[in-house]
Simulated assay, not measured.
Amino acid sequence: MTFAAPKLDELPEVTAEIAAHAAEHDRTGDLPWPGLEIAHRAGLLTATVGTRFGGPGLGHRDTARILTALGEGDASVALLAANNLGTHAAQAVHPSWPAAAYDDLLRRSEKGPALANAVRAEPELGAPARGGLPKTALTRDGDGWLLNGRKAYATGGTGLAYHVVWAVTDDDRVGHAIVAGDNDGITWVDTWDHIGLRASNTHDVIYENVRLPLDAFVEIPRGADGVYRDPAAATGPGSFGHPALYIGVARAARSAFAEYARHRVPAALGRPIAETERIQSVAGEIDLQIVQAETLLHGALLRLEAGDPGLLPELSAIKVAIARSVIAATQTAVAALGNPGLSRHNPLERHLRDALCIRVHPPQEDAVLLASGRRVLKKESEK
């Protein structure tokens, strides 16, 4: 199998095509298959497939460019793509899937959009990054496993070709089960009725005696001290895919604001509001926040590529700063327009709803500020 490298200079055209379907799927909540098909044809859903598997093996900065373009078109498409690209990128660096399962995912990816995603949160546990272990269990059964449990916030829903399910075995090992989405015993519960990312199908899923081969379990080793640490709570270059897509949402808000300002001509003014200094200043503030977010994102990735060790403790804080800028940009656009900015007839309100979702991705702001503050105070006390 061979996957061609996407043509990054054609990303603006892909953005425009995907954007044409975004409002409809936001209203219906249906999986955004038209947008996913467009992304698939452009080679964007397989851009991080490793070269050892016949893929282009794109790096973090090019992946960020792709996700920003997709986010500018449709945030739900971009979220599904981000999770998929992250799965392929992880497999490229540390192959851990059973060979047959990953080959199957790649074969499906040749024919059309084939999505994979980590399925981790649980109704009782909440966000895994906050600590705790899952109740979802793998029990030995002959020469394989039986998977049982309920997961929440499983982004991709019935569109997932593969689930990477966080679970505990009956001998107390922690890891992920690689589960084909069409296995018997999987039931979806339509729980997703969210303010933003409405087409992402982030529903609950129940696993009831789902039979899996023995090699479907991929163990996550505990630390040297015997403590299990959730890998989702660690911030690395691969975790910047989510911030990248929300920068695209902020870009879309900037465009929607400018479009409205160029065409809005109040009778009392007699000319477009885009010609007033007030609106020009607002547009400048929106642009400043987006420039700041993009510079933080790509600057951090460039420093990581250069091997800057001093950046690692700051990565979580950079993600928080990007989130603040994205939300500030969209809120500024909406606030300046008043009622029109909150109307369902204006895409700005959708962009604001989607932008607010950046806060839910780990690590959350309160945890980051606490850890950063403790690090600073400890450092200062040691001087």
Rank of each mutant, 00 (worst) to 15 (best):
T68K: 13
E17G: 08
E17S: 14
P243L: 04
H94C: 01
Y162F: 15
D9P: 01
H351R: 14
D215V: 02
I327S: 03
G226F: 08
V218I: 11
G57V: 10
D308V: 12
S96T: 12
D9Q: 14
E110W: 08
I247Y: 04
Q280L: 07
R27N: 00
I358K: 01
H263E: 15
L302I: 01
V14Q: 02
N209T: 01
W33G: 00
L11C: 05
T169C: 10
S255G: 07
L245R: 09
L348E: 09
G43Y: 05
A100E: 15
A82E: 15
A267G: 10
S281H: 13
L296H: 11
H176P: 00
F3I: 03
G126I: 04
L138A: 00
G29Q: 05
H263P: 08
R350G: 05
A129C: 10
A300N: 03
T187W: 01
P34V: 07
L377M: 13
P266N: 09
W145P: 02
I206C: 06
F257K: 06
R262M: 13
A274D: 15
G373P: 09
D287F: 00
V168L: 14
P347R: 06
L8W: 08
A317K: 09
L315D: 08
L36H: 00
R324F: 01
N83T: 05
G29D: 04
Y228D: 03
R350A: 10
C357M: 12
A4D: 15
V282F: 04
A258I: 12
E277Q: 12
L138V: 00
R353D: 12
A371V: 07
R222V: 13
V93Y: 09
D184A: 15
E13S: 15
C357D: 04
L296Y: 12
V77N: 01
H194R: 08
Y162V: 14
R375L: 13
A47W: 01
H298L: 14
G373I: 10
A268H: 12
A323F: 05
G142L: 07
A64I: 05
A267I: 11
A42K: 10
E13F: 11
D230I: 02
A81V: 04
I206Q: 09
S109P: 07
A244Y: 02
V189G: 00
A244H: 02
K111T: 09
D225N: 15
D366C: 03
I195E: 09
R262P: 00
G29T: 05
N117S: 15
L115M: 11
T136F: 03
H242E: 02
G310Q: 08
A180T: 04
E24P: 01
R251F: 01
A78T: 04
A167P: 04
L312R: 13
S281E: 13
V368T: 14
E305I: 08
L85T: 03
G43C: 11
V174D: 02
R107M: 08
P362V: 08
P362F: 03
G55I: 02
R350I: 10
G35T: 03
R374M: 09
A152E: 04
R173T: 11
P6Y: 10
E382P: 00
A233I: 08
L31Q: 06
S316Y: 06
D9V: 13
